[in-house]
């Protein structure tokens, strides 16, 4: 017999998508058509194999990170931030090894003042993502980027390329934040852009406190060192941003 049954009908039958009358017609045809029985069996086998692939287990921190993000977005009072949890495998020990210089405390601050400044930093980050606003000096060579800031700033930011660690330097830019000239160093992590803002600190701090702020889907890491304030801003996940901050410390 001649079989004109189209492949999509066979699949729609298996997917339970045929109307009752189409289903009856198809089954009647199927009973007499060896060809269609084989084709149907082949698709059924394939579908079963695909179903067997099932789920891969999701990363353990995903739910927690989303919860933290939701808390932040909803503007509720956030619970204290647990740094040892955040650092996890990325090496709490490595961080605490440099405790002479670094005293790390975890807090999430939502004071209005803090948020106003956070908005300013995020705006500066977002502005930099717009076409042709990312760099004033586009270079992955730190010996080109560092001298470029000479005469533009009253301090000299340390410029290091972390290409070997997966955080290549893309370039530098001059910004004004809180009315101060600010060095912006641009790094990348895969497709994520990371802005590192360096400016003179308002008050020289003896104790260095690192802060993580999550706001509007962006992560900010903030710390002071030797009279300079450093802020990382990116939409990169906080774990990898933290790992990058660890590399930036001398």
């Amino acid at each position: 017999m001649v079989c004109n049954e189209i492949q999509q009908n066979i699949e729609a039958y298996l997917d339970g998508e045929l109307t009752l009358s189409d289903r009856r017609d198809f089954e009647e045809h199927l009973g007499n058509c060896n060809n269609c029985q084989l084709r149907l069996e082949a698709v059924r086998k394939l579908n079963t194999s695909i179903k067997k692939i099932g789920y891969s287990s999701r990363p353990s921190g995903l739910k927690r990170n989303i919860r933290a993000g939701l808390l932040d977005l909803s503007g509720e009072d956030s619970p204290g931030f647990n740094w040892s949890q955040l650092l996890g495998f990325s090496g709490a020990s490595a961080l605490f090894a440099g405790v002479g210089v670094w005293l790390v405390m975890g807090v999430m601050i939502n004071s209005p003042l803090q948020l106003a400044h956070t908005d300013e930093l995020i705006s500066a980050h977002v502005r930099s993502l717009m076409v042709d606003h990312m760099t004033d000096i586009a270079s992955s060579d730190r010996h080109t980027v560092k001298p470029w800031f000479n005469g533009k700033l009253d301090f000299s930011p340390n410029v290091v390329d972390f290409k070997d660690h997966g955080y290549p330097l893309v370039g530098g830019r001059l910004d004004y934040l809180k009315g101060r000239p600010t060095a912006a160093l641009i790094y990348k992590r895969r497709a994520h852009v990371i802005n590192l803002f360096v400016r003179k600190a308002d008050t020289p701090a003896q104790i260095t406190t690192m802060q993580l702020i999550q706001h509007q889907g962006y992560q900010l890491l903030n710390w002071q060192e030797r009279g300079l304030t450093y802020t990382l801003v990116s939409d990169l996940n906080s774990k990898e941003l933290q790992a990058f901050a660890n590399k930036l410390q001398p």
């Binding site: 999701r58 995903l62 990170n65 989303i66 993000g69 939701l70 977005l73 994520h192 889907g217 939409d235 990169l236 996940n237």
Partner: peptide, 8 residues
């Protein structure tokens, strides 16, 4: 990353 971004 995508799921985190999408949920936000």
């Amino acid at each position: 990353d995508i799921v985190q971004t999408a949920y936000m």
